[in-house]
């Protein structure tokens, strides 16, 4: 029986592990936090279908009740050494592992919105991130003002993505549609609230995304203004004044909003940097792990026997992460078959 070590227990790690154990391998998931599930633990409901993140996560986890799957929580891999075609792996816990293949599924981290100081995150009370909004939804903490429901809420796209100043040139892919989804959720909770989304480009690349954007305009009166916020300033009543150019009319624009939501992007982060470094996998200038080929080998890292799955290779949705994880399992199986043939 072959043994595979999966680094990271988010959507990508859980799904890769489940598929590999279904094909008869022994799998160990090494997760640094105290629970499986990664970011999905914090999300409320998911685009594009508003299914509950918890339900999707429960389903993913229900597959892992297989005899040959073990999970090491609060553990990190500290070294990976190749000897005789196998990997000797040391962890931060007492476990030492021997593996035939390694899958890195260490995911992403959220852009720290404090780095865009001009938007006032953690300075002004009523400026929050999209991730904060998900957590609030889960805790039933609505956006309020002392008078009740907010009159006006604005979303800011591309916070920490596509921005030289943040050091991130790439697009985080999921935040445009997250903004649309969250705007609709807010509108359902308080139909009287006016909602504006400030964007540079709207990237509705996935199945059902464009339709959801149209529904947001048609059914929920959500308004989209093409222009990047230059600044936000708190007023005495804690509302926030924002400035942008309405680029399509060529005029500067200002408005007061009761709440400002920053659609934060994805970064490779320290988790993926650590995992890539112990595995000796090459990273791109963006920080995400480089794959061997952009078309055919999106699950192969620069090291033989070390595979990659999910958003540690670049921003991706849950839908795409599950697909990527399944294809990682296929690649690992393929690798094992080739190894066996070469021994015959």
């Amino acid at each position: 029986m072959k043994h595979v070590v999966v680094i990271g227990g988010g959507v990508a790690g859980i799904e890769t592990a489940a598929q590999l154990s279904k094909s008869g391998h022994w799998v160990t998931v090494v997760e640094k936090s105290n629970q499986l599930g990664g970011k999905l633990n914090d999300w409320h409901c998911l685009f594009p279908d508003f299914s509950l993140a918890k339900e999707q996560l429960d389903w993913l986890q229900s597959q892992k009740h297989q005899a040959d799957l073990q999970v090491l929580l609060e553990t990190k891999v500290t070294s990976v050494n190749r000897t005789n075609g196998r990997f000797a792996i040391e962890t931060s816990g007492k476990d030492k592992l021997e593996a035939d293949a390694v899958v890195v599924a260490s995911g992403y981290e959220l852009f720290d919105a404090r780095r865009k100081e001009e938007y006032g995150y953690k300075i002004y009370e009523r400026v929050i991130t999209s991730a904060d909004l998900e957590k609030r939804m889960n805790n039933g903490e609505l956006l309020r003002t002392p008078e009740g429901a907010p009159n006006r809420v604005a979303f800011v796209h591309c916070v920490g993505s596509r921005d030289e100043k943040s050091g991130n040139h790439y697009c985080s892919k999921v935040c445009c549609i997250t903004g649309v989804k969250q705007a609709i959720e807010l509108k359902k909770l308080s139909p009287g609230t006016e909602i504006f989304c400030f964007y540079m480009d709207l990237r509705m690349y996935g199945k059902h995304f464009e339709e959801l954007y149209r529904t947001a305009q048609e059914k929920y009166d959500i308004q989209f203004i093409r222009g990047r916020l230059s600044e936000a300033a708190e007023k005495i009543d804690k509302s926030v004044q924002i400035k942008a150019e309405d680029t399509l009319s060529g005029r500067p624009l200002k408005m007061n909003v009761d709440w400002l939501v920053l659609l934060v992007g994805m970064e490779a982060g320290t988790g993926t940097a650590q995992a890539a470094s112990v595995c000796g996998s090459r990273c791109e200038s963006s920080g995400f792990i480089a794959t061997a080929d952009e078309h055919r080998s999106t699950n192969l890292s620069s090291q033989e026997g070390i595979f990659v799955a999910g958003s540690c290779t670049g921003p991706m949705s849950v839908t795409d992460t599950i697909l990527h994880a399944r294809s990682a399992a296929c690649e690992v199986n393929d690798y094992f078959q080739k190894l066996e043939k070469s021994w015959l």
């Binding site: 006006r152 309405d246 009319s249 005029r251 500067p252 624009l253 200002k254 408005m255 007061n256």
Partner: peptide, 9 residues
């Protein structure tokens, strides 16, 4: 000079 800013207030 009348400001050119679109003022939502």
């Amino acid at each position: 000079i009348k400001p050119r800013t679109i003022d939502f207030e």
